[in-house]
Amino acid sequence: MNTEFGISIKDVHKEFAVNHTGIASLKSLLVFWKKRTLVKREVLKGISLDVKRGECLAIIGKNGAGKSTLLSLLARIYKPTSGTINVNGRVAPLLELGAGFHPDLTGYENVYFNAVILGLTREQVKERLPSIIEFSELGDAIGAPVRTYSSGMMARLGFSIAVHVDAEILIVDEVLAVGDQHFEKKCLQRVGEFRDNGGTILLVSHQLKSVEEFADRCIWLHDGNVQMTGKPAEVVAEYVKEG
């Protein structure tokens, strides 16, 4: 396996079955066996992509272009319909922070759970707990149930966990703008540090300015295909022109 690349994707297709009658039920299965309205929709139509270690790749494109599907494939949430995906290293998805929080458990208990899901052992969580709590700036609120948190607090805690799990690859889906100005700056700084230490970053954003500032390379997805790859400034300029 080539270890120069953090991520290597070859000719990946992804199809989803779309059911027009809504959630499947046994009744609809039995009654409409003959005329099931399962429509296949191809979301990714043959994507090939290599991302070097330590590179920051931005993905831009319209809604429904397949950006999030691509990231989910890399996070191993889906299996591709065809093609191969090689990911070297642990992936920490920053997709919608705090996805796994349980409202009735305290912040402390949720940190445990989320960090272990992302691949830490309980021992490691225990070691990093002070640092996680300090970064999140939650203070004493860490002992309160998460249902009492504001959305900003939840996002801060989620981000704090994700950057403490020693991932080699960070997947950032439109979530850098969490919390207030002060925390956003801190996040960006932390992500920068992560990159300086040789971490690979995949960034999906509609904020074209931050893409230009942050990324080394940019790809533009259009309708499941790679429309253009290149320097962020050039790709963004072309993307804006297209409108």
């Binding site: 949430i77 998805p93 996805a99 796994g100 899901i117």
Partner: peptide
Amino acid sequence: LPLIKKIYF
């Protein structure tokens, strides 16, 4: 399901 859609395990 919301968790499964975000993180692999």
